[in-house]
Computed example of a mutant assay.
Amino acid sequence: MKSARKIVTKKSRGRPLTGTGIQVGERWSPEAIAAIDDWRRNQSDLPGRPEAIRRLVEIGLKKG
């Protein structure tokens, strides 16, 4: 008689991957953060701060 085997998938450790882009860390002055927060509050969908920064960078690159 064969013994019953249980197939168990091993869980990976740590936080799940969220994206494939390159992470860039920056320090911002309180004045710059306030300006970003003011801009994002005027947006219809109120993006989070990281999304607001992405949008502002895209706007700046299109104008350049």
Rank of each mutant, 00 (worst) to 15 (best):
W28H: 13
D45E: 14
T20N: 09
G14K: 06
I53F: 03
D37V: 06
A4E: 12
K62M: 08
A4R: 11
I53Y: 01
D45F: 10
D45Y: 06
R54W: 01
I59A: 13
A35N: 08
W28A: 10
I59Q: 07
Q23Y: 05
P16V: 06
D38W: 03
K2G: 12
D45W: 05
I22F: 03
T18I: 09
R49G: 02
G21K: 04
W39M: 03
G25C: 04
K62V: 05
R54K: 14
A32P: 00
I33R: 10
V8H: 04
K11M: 04
R40G: 01
T18V: 12
E31D: 15
A32H: 02
G21A: 14
P50E: 07
L46Q: 11
E31Q: 15
K6V: 13
R54A: 15
S12A: 15
A32F: 09
S29K: 07
A32L: 15
R5S: 11
G21N: 11
R13F: 05
A52D: 06
T20S: 11
D45A: 13
S12W: 00
I36K: 01
T18N: 08
K11Q: 09
S12P: 04
I53P: 01
L56H: 00
P50V: 06
E31W: 00
K11W: 02
I59Y: 07
R54Y: 02
K62R: 13
I7E: 07
R15H: 10
P50N: 13
G19D: 14
G64V: 11
R15C: 02
E31Y: 03
N42T: 05
I22N: 05
N42K: 15
S29A: 12
V24H: 14
L17H: 05
I59W: 03
K6D: 12
G21D: 12
R27Q: 09
I22M: 07
L56R: 05
I36H: 06
G48H: 08
T9P: 00
R41W: 00
R27M: 11
R54D: 07
S3M: 04
D38G: 12
L56C: 13
A4L: 14
K63G: 02
L46N: 13
R55C: 09
T9C: 02
A34I: 01
L17Q: 10
T18E: 13
T9L: 10
S44R: 08
D37E: 15
I33E: 11
S3A: 09
S3Y: 01
G14P: 03
D37T: 06
L61H: 06
G19Y: 06
R40W: 02
R15N: 14
T9Y: 11
K11F: 00
